[in-house]
């Protein structure tokens, strides 16, 4: 039987397969080791880092929704210094591509993060989070205006030679406009989508369920929105795409690749099925073999032709 080539190349970032885990759903790569060896993954995107440690938002941070969930964690993280000291050496030992998600509240924050994260380490790329819906300033505010989105990427670009992934927010009128802006700013790769802003209200307390009132919607419920946005961005912008948003099966992953994603990222599905990323890798390979594709990359964008 012919072997299917799963290797994936994203603007100089080499992955052993196109399946990555999403920021905020996979900690710093340690929580899922009781289930499988994370070296099997194409890559791991670590929890978003900010210059200083953050306690994040109060609880409740989680609310269930039909076929999905809301979260408002608020970028709880140990901060840049602790990340470099404690977590980076451990990530070094995993043996797969590491993508570090960076967040900030000002352009200086992004500049500091970019210049502090080492270019010669296990870090394969930086994912610039301009789309977090759960913090008051920065985050999504940068990602919903084309001019500031371009500016953040431009500033970050100046401070590192690592490939830059711009993570886009779906909470915009025109995703293509933002995608073009980050391309102008110098992004190498586009990842989308972050969570959709939502909320739920408790009928007993008659108050919002989340302590932070609103949160980001993820899970299978958002999948068609994400597929649509990947499709639109693929058509309009000539940058590789990491597609994400509700992927929980290999069929979902194939759909994203057909829409134009060169790689896919698995987030919320990890919570329900820790083995989802592995099942998706195997399913992608099996699909390609069955359908006669020698490389998984042949699938990318087929829905457009």
């Amino acid at each position: 039987m012919k072997k299917v080539d799963l290797t994936t190349q994203l603007a100089g970032v080499k992955l052993k397969n196109p399946v990555i885990t999403s920021s905020g759903t996979y900690g710093f790569g340690e929580e899922y080791t009781p289930f499988y060896d994370p070296a099997l993954l194409g890559g791991i995107t670590v929890k978003g880092i900010t210059p200083l440690p953050r306690l994040g938002n109060p609880v409740p941070r989680i609310a269930e929704t039909p076929s999905g969930m809301l979260n408002s964690v608020g970028l709880e993280n140990p901060g840049l210094e602790e990340f470099l000291k404690t977590y980076l050496p451990r990530l070094e030992r995993i043996g797969t591509a590491i993508i570090v998600n960076i967040s900030g509240f000002s352009l200086d924050d992004y500049a500091l993060m970019a210049s502090s994260l080492p270019e010669h380490s296990c870090i394969s790329a930086l994912e610039v989070n301009i789309s977090c819906p759960n913090i008051q300033h920065g985050g999504m505010a940068f990602g919903t205006d084309p001019r500031s989105a371009e500016e953040v990427i431009k500033v970050t670009r100046k401070h590192t030679r690592l490939p830059l992934i711009a993570k886009l927010s779906p909470n915009v009128t025109d995703i293509v406009e933002i995608a073009k802006a980050v391309a102008r700013g110098g992004a190498d790769i586009i990842s989308l989508i972050n969570t959709l802003l939502g909320m739920r209200i408790d009928l007993k307390t008659r108050k919002p369920v989340l302590a932070n009132t609103m949160g980001g919607l993820s899970g299978p419920a958002v999948l068609p929105v994400a597929v649509r946005m990947v499709y639109q961005v693929y058509k309009a912008v000539d940058l590789p795409i990491i597609g994400m948003g509700g992927i929980s099966t290999w069929q979902d992953a194939v759909e994203f690749m057909l829409a134009g994603a060169s790689a896919v990222s698995i987030g919320t599905a990890n919570f329900v099925n820790p083995l989802a990323p592995l099942e998706i890798i195997n399913g992608l390979e099996e699909y390609c073999r069955r359908e006669g594709y020698g490389s998984v990359q042949e699938l990318v964008g087929l829905a457009h032709s």
């Binding site: 900690g27 929580e31 009781p34 609880v59 941070r61 964690v73 919320t268 990890n270 919570f271």
Partner: peptide, 11 residues
């Protein structure tokens, strides 16, 4: 959510 310490939902 996750039950294994990854999502930081239940702090």
């Amino acid at each position: 959510a996750c039950g294994v310490g990854a999502c930081l939902g239940c702090v």
